[in-house]
Every structure is written in C-alpha cells, then in structure tokens.
Design a protein around this nucleic acid. Structure first.
Lengths: 147, 147
DNA sequence: ACTAAGATTAGAAACATTATTAATTAATAA
DNA sequence: TTATTAATTAATAATGTTTCTAATCTTAGT
C-alpha cells in the first residue's frame, strides 16, 4: 500500500520532468511512510546513515520541489521549523503545545466561512488554515506525574 | 477613545508590577493606534525617529512582556516575521498572499470544533487558530492592470 | 541623594532557511 | 555503451528573525 503511493508519486515526478535521484527518492519515501509530520532536520537526521554526504540544503531543495509539484505540503506553525506532510487530502491539524507533536484532524472543510470572508472583506480567498492547540495524552500525564 | 484604551492598558501594566518606560509606552501606544498588525521591525522603524538610540532587542523585549500580560497577541504566519495585534477580542484574520496585509475577520468562535477535536484526539485542547488566505482588493486590481 | 531592582543598549549568537557555485549525476539519444 | 546536457548535489556563505549577554543606565522607594 505504501509502495503504491510511492509508485504513484514517482510517476508524478517523471511526468513533471523531475529527476529521480537517490536522495530525492529517499526524502519522498521517508515522508510517505512517516506518520509524524517531520521537520527538514528530522528527515536529514533520519537519512544521515544512508547518505553520509547529503547536505541539509538538499533536503530543503527536495522538499521545495516536492511541494511545488503538489506531492507534499509545508506546515509552518509559529516560530519553530516547518513540518512536512505527504497527506494531501483536505484535513486539519492538532498541535501539542508541549512536545510539538502534530496529528491529523478530519473535519468537513469550512467552505462557508471562506465565502463569507470573501464577501465581507473584498479579498479573493484561496484557502484557509485551521489548527487546534493543546496538550497531547503523553504530555498531560507527564505533567500529572511531575506534581 | 484610543486614550481610554491606552489608559486601561497602562493600568494593567501598573497592576502587573511592570514599569512604564518611555520605550514601552511608545510600543504600546503604537500598537493600540495601529490598525495594520505591525511586525517588530515595523514598530522599530516607526519609533526610530522618536528614540534614535532604541535597539531592536528592546522592541522584542517589550512585545514579549506585553504578550505575557495579555495586552498583545503574537501572530506568526509561516516563515515571515511575526505580527502583533493589540485587539484581544476573539477574532480571526485574513492574510493577503501577495502583500502580506492582515485584516480582522469576525466570526462566531468555533467552539464545537474544539470539543470534537478534544473527544476524537484525546488532546486537551486550549485554543485554535483560523486564518484565511487570498488576495486583497489592491493586489487583485494590481494584477489585472499588469496584463 | 542613595540603593537595589529592573530596563535598555549594542553586539554577538543562535537558528532555520536560501543563495551560490563548482563538481557530479540522471536521463535521453546516438 | 557512451556521450551529451541540463538538473542536482555538496559545501559553504549569506540572510533574516529572534534571543542572549554583559555593561550601563533608570526608576521607585527609603
């Protein structure tokens, strides 16, 4: 099942005229199999053993290219590093304020809010972002233990 | 009317035991009268003539302090600089993808989504953020003119 | 006026990300 | 297979925002 997704993604790359280099393949594969919305540095560290000479710039480069083709989405929350998500279906995110963990949250798209905003503001609205912030299970119990 | 807000804010500072220095007063006043959700650098530049010796660190310092007391809110969108908002009422924002302009958007708080997210994720949800992205009127016409 | 606590300054450091560039490589066609 | 060529890589420098540090200065209260 993961292989199917990877194969589809690779075909998309080919059709876009983007070369499939070992590094690019590895970044893509890592994102497709990861459930953790990794940062560029997470990916860099994870692939370090396989590609000892790879530079961080290569990771950023490939993330940008994958984003441009629409295989990957960049999630930037506040001040920290951006995270990357290979699940391109419409969905929202819940972020743990303590450990930074990000999980998917499925909810019907808030299209009515977009059209209302467009009407009242005069903007031409293209998209929206919704994130929920709180404490994940682990961080809740961790705090309970500390006291 | 702005003076009232400023006076109330200054009282809050006093009650929190925070000194009212000229720089801090100026940052606060600028935020209260500005409608533009300025960045730290905007504020720095705007106050430069009044305080030629002020350092950027002072602006950041004061923004942090004002945030901690709850007089100001930090808005961080993606990679660019954070913007600051002295309107502490519940509201959302619409961001222009071209020029970065940010305007307020009033809409009933999405509390049901928070409670649903809490139920399905096991997180303890504290807050949420919603931003709408698009092109403002000015940037729409600008694009139309270019062609 | 004096003191202690707190604030400001300037500069440096930290950090993520982007730009640069010469060398290497993937994809294609000969 | 080999040659060709444009894309990609690695390494490093550069950028931009934000934080940290240490020294100096202000303030409020005695």
């Amino acid at each position: 099942m993961e292989n199917e997704k990877l194969q589809t993604a690779i075909n998309t790359l080919k059709n876009s005229g983007v070369r499939i280099t070992p590094q690019r393949h590895a970044v893509l594969e890592y994102l497709l199999t990861s459930m953790t919305h990794p940062t560029a540095d997470d990916i860099y560290k994870a692939l370090e053993s396989k590609f000892p000479n790879m530079s961080v710039a290569t990771v950023y480069n490939n993330l940008r290219i994958l984003s441009e083709i629409g295989l990957v989405r960049e999630l930037s929350y506040g001040d920290d590093s951006s995270r990357y998500d290979s699940n391109m279906d419409d969905h929202y995110h819940i972020v743990c304020e303590d450990c930074g963990k990000v999980v998917d949250f499925h909810y019907p798209k808030l299209s009515e809010i977009e059209s209302l905003a467009q009407r009242v503001s005069g903007f031409e609205i293209n998209e929206h972002r919704l994130e929920l912030y709180g404490k994940c299970k682990a961080c809740k119990t961790e705090k309970a233990v500390q006291h």
